[in-house]
Design a protein around this nucleic acid. Structure first.
Lengths: 124, 124
DNA sequence: AGTCGTTATATTTATAAAGATATGACGATA
DNA sequence: TATCGTCATATCTTTATAAATATAACGACT
């Protein structure tokens, strides 16, 4: 039995937590990971995708991909974009998007509570 | 206003769902994604990592990485491995692991209920 | 001593994801 | 019509992840 390996302890105090991630999906394809809501909020604030991306430290390309993907899945558009014009263009978020933002905020709160409860249950 | 883009609808009926993923983490580092529990269950059933891996369609390497990572984070080992011996060796799961498996099953049930509730809330 | 199937690790090869850069279209305004 | 900043897309490069392959140690058993 001398070759039996007993891997030993890293965290004796067992600081275990239940973690998780939520998203909204459409036919199995997720379109609201962690970033998108913040991105929409920033677009609402900044008025353009490129400014929102910079504010989040994302490349425009990445930001655009997120928005485009989400936008393709909703019945009504989440954003209205305009290229050209007064200040080069810009992007507005629709009421549809605003509703989603609000829902997602409350969802996140409930989820955090869920995780907290589960962590308690795990450690008792 | 002619350059204004209105992205149009993919899913008119709005079959939105709330999806998610849970894991158990240790100091911010996750060690129980979706696969590990099933893997542990299969190890328990099969008696070896390599057989469990095959049963799940994983490479041994991947399976071992999962087990090793998890094993390093618990105070007591999740598995006891033996190389060499009667049938080449094998792996046993400890009581620690069995407890985790049981907890994780019940956790998943509660999470599914949570997701179901949230999906309802989202669509009303 | 040689065989066997497993654990454990290293090395290499593919594949995928992410990042950087470049370019054109757009339209109000000057 | 020339300029501007933004939207939108394409291409290339880099990085990270995953898969495939190879190899050594192990110990009961014959």
């Amino acid at each position: 039995m001398s070759a039996v390996t007993i891997k030993s302890l890293q965290h004796r105090g067992l600081p275990f937590q239940v973690g998780g991630k939520l998203w909204i999906e459409c036919k199995g394809k997720k379109f609201f990971g962690p970033g998108p809501v913040e991105l929409l909020e920033l677009i609402q604030k900044e008025g353009s995708i490129i400014k929102a991306a910079r504010a989040m430290g994302l490349s425009y390309k990445k930001a655009w991909a997120i928005i485009d993907s989400a936008n393709r899945m909703t019945a009504r558009p989440l954003v209205i974009t305009q290229s050209g014009g007064k200040k080069g263009g810009g992007t507005l978020v629709t009421d549809e998007a605003k509703k989603l933002i609000i829902y997602h905020r409350s969802l996140r709160k409930r989820f955090e509570q869920f995780l907290k409860n589960e962590t308690k249950r795990l450690n008792r």
